[in-house]
Write a protein that binds this DNA or RNA. Structure first.
Lengths: 253, 253
DNA sequence: GACCCTCTACTGTCAGAACAACCGGACAAC
DNA sequence: GTTGTCCGGTTGTTCTGACAGTAGAGGGTC
């Protein structure tokens, strides 16, 4: 059986908004992604070639290419020179993105709750200096939280933030995710570097997470940077492994 | 202190090979990356603007943009419209890429060793069908290996491969990494979907990894797809967490 | 001094075009 | 039969050119 040439319905691309603020390539990418998600474009299907697509939609090839490239980077499409562009087999997985656990839970329909274990301004220790690039001894905010979902303890979140955020208070932290609070202050996270590992839970961690002593926990250390490249957050989290794991998609560029 | 305008030495870009097979944007990106790694471009430094760079190097702006974009995707640079492009603070970390553990170890100067625990052709079980998209009961290769580095056991690798690879033999698997063997057959991995978690080691795992019973292990389940979007490998690995962890860089596009 | 406006400097988006590299198959040559 | 060669189709690379959107700095007014 030959790979069926897949003819994309024109209707999918009919309502492009050329005057609005949403870039054309983004509109195309979104529609394509939706088509892949709901199997309108099944796994293995071949896309129409770039020049034809561009002509049919009345767009330039760079615009089409940009849209396709975004989906390639997401791991949804694969390109081969001389061959064409195809939909990747395998289920689509929701990836780790530059979001907080709080938002992840909300989006997946669970009800996140936060218990603030401690929040205090302390002089930066060596780890904070290293991760945040602040001066040794300068005031930083140290926050420890217990995050639950649907009433079940899920993770212990230990975060350090630089001086500009030392006025964040307990109440705000109980009600909202950390990233929400940062964004509300005009901070936009752009890059995060994470290290994911595992170890045995300490006695305190075991108690908080409702695990037996020495049980495995999944750990993640992260430093996040804003759009000017400056570190805005450093965190060490530990998760109940039976309730949480990380999904990552790798793409060879 | 104002952000110093950083003047990039022209010498860095003098030996561009315009006729060779290496794309210009790639040559630019490599040189820039090197400059960031060896602190020629220190953290926080502002790059010259795109148009000026293009003019100075005798290239077009799209070429420069492509080079910069690659480094943004790697988490090395940050762009802000109206402002410019800056080097991200924080140490550069070698990321998980589309490579096997074997190559990771080799590259970091350690000596990887492989002990093949079992290798056999079996009918595909449900998990294999699900992950690889093969027909139920079709023959697949099931490989179990113990990977050590510098004589210390590091991970247990459990992999399943589709029918076309059922002739891989024990000797080859002892001597080379799995991905090396696949590439040698003309397979090029392009996309991989991974799930990273943690759990307690089974009795057998503990013995193989030289851990105490019930000790935490770091787990990774991966499905890899080739350049036509077809699954070529499915693996479930477990690592000694004191010897291995994953590094991931996230970038907001 | 505080506020608003404009101006400047940058990145973001898009068009249109040309040629290179590559794949697969068909066909010719050996 | 095997190997080499060509050809059509497709993505990859690169260029030129233009305009839009955003942030910061500076100047003006109140």
């Amino acid at each position: 059986m030959a790979q069926s040439e897949h003819r994309l319905p024109v209707e999918l691309f009919l309502d492009l908004d050329r005057s609005g603020p949403v870039p054309l390539y983004y509109q195309i990418a979104s529609r394509l992604e939706q088509a892949i998600l709901d199997q309108t474009l099944p796994a293995g299907a071949r896309l129409e070639n770039e020049v034809a697509l561009a002509a049919r939609l009345g767009l330039s090839r760079p615009t089409i290419r940009r849209a396709i490239q975004d989906l390639v980077d997401k791991g949804l499409l694969v390109r081969r020179r001389g061959i064409g562009t195809q939909v990747v087999h395998g289920k689509v997985t929701r990836n780790v993105e530059l979001t907080s656990l709080y938002e992840d839970l909300e989006r997946s329909g669970q009800k996140p709750e936060t218990r603030v274990l401690s929040v205090e301004v302390v002089p930066a220790d060596e780890a904070a200096v290293e991760a945040l690039g602040v001066d040794p001894g300068s005031p930083v905010l140290h926050v420890q939280r217990l995050r639950s979902a649907d009433g079940v303890p899920l993770a212990i979140l230990d975060n350090v933030l630089p001086e500009q955020f030392t006025d964040l208070d307990r109440e705000a932290l109980e009600k909202h995710g950390l990233y929400q609070l940062l964004r509300a202050r005009g901070v936009t996270m752009r890059v995060a570097k994470q290290r994911i590992g595992a170890r045995a839970a300490s006695a305190r961690e075991a108690e908080l997470l409702d695990l037996s002593r020495g049980a495995p926990v999944l750990t993640m250390a992260r430093t996040a940077f804003d759009n000017s490249g400056v570190a805005v957050e450093f965190g060490q989290h530990c998760y109940r492994p039976d309730r949480y794991s990380f999904e990552v998609t790798l793409v060879d560029r």
